[in-house]
Write a protein that binds this DNA or RNA. Sequence first.
DNA 1: ATTATATTATTGAGGGGTCAATGATTGATG
DNA 2: CATCAATCATTGACCCCTCAATAATATAAT
Lengths: 140, 140
Amino acid sequence: MKFTISEQEELLFLFKTLNNQLGPKFERNTNFSLSRFELLYQLVQYDEISQSRLQKIINIDHAAITRHLKQLEADELVSRRRNPTDNRETIVHLTDEGYKQIMNCQQDKSSFANQMFLQFSDEELQSLMDMLKRIQENIR
Amino acid sequence: MKFTISEQEELLFLFKTLNNQLGPKFERNTNFSLSRFELLYQLVQYDEISQSRLQKIINIDHAAITRHLKQLEADELVSRRRNPTDNRETIVHLTDEGYKQIMNCQQDKSSFANQMFLQFSDEELQSLMDMLKRIQENIR
DNA sequence: ATTATATTATTGAGGGGTCAATGATTGATG
DNA sequence: CATCAATCATTGACCCCTCAATAATATAAT
């Protein structure tokens, strides 16, 4: 006995598939994973920021944040130190090398995003963004 | 010095975030990961199917397919045997227990998908599907 | 027939993510 | 001020994924 799949359900799986394809492609183009890129990007914006604030912005688990930053620190793209006024916090800061590298792959990231949304109108981008945010709300 | 992020780039990261949230939620609701669910779903459709055909349908790496099916076999939701007419292939078949379990969580999956697309019109679903497929084409 | 080529499945290494438990530090409260 | 509760970071266990290398089998080509 077979059963059918609704359009909604098809979309759910399409999402997963698309994402599985997106991540590796992005990484091949920029040499950074999406998460690492986001992390470094935020560090450019904030200069100094605690891990827990980064966590809230990036929206991945604390554990993943810690491990990414430890690795980025080992790679010397980032420096970390305790917050003197609150010793629970670790404050993260981009090194010169980190800044250089994230700036270097700006172009790659942009052209990747352009390729991804080739032939999308502004209205479509807007509507897509809107729908994704609504989905996010719906499953919250 | 800061730099800005285009709408396209914002969408790229929104995709990743949304997906990171989608997977775990789905799993908590159905007790199957999205991939396992898809695998079992296809087995309901095909009754018997080779791993390589499954791989092409589900669109994840061969290695992941092998590991999922080995685990599902250990859980006795699936049986596997060599194809007598082509010994390279492994043919996969759903067990009664596997059938029972996948059918059991149909309801959970449906209500999850409904929740996800709450207040989406048919046109929106259609347009979303269309856009996702175009993105998939664009990055292929 | 024998050799070269392609297909299928498997494994190992490594990256990314979650959840749960732990330890340290800070803040609030009786 | 002593204790209890919240916050932050870290670690371990485990899941999912990709890529690359390998082994086995089948197919094609000389």
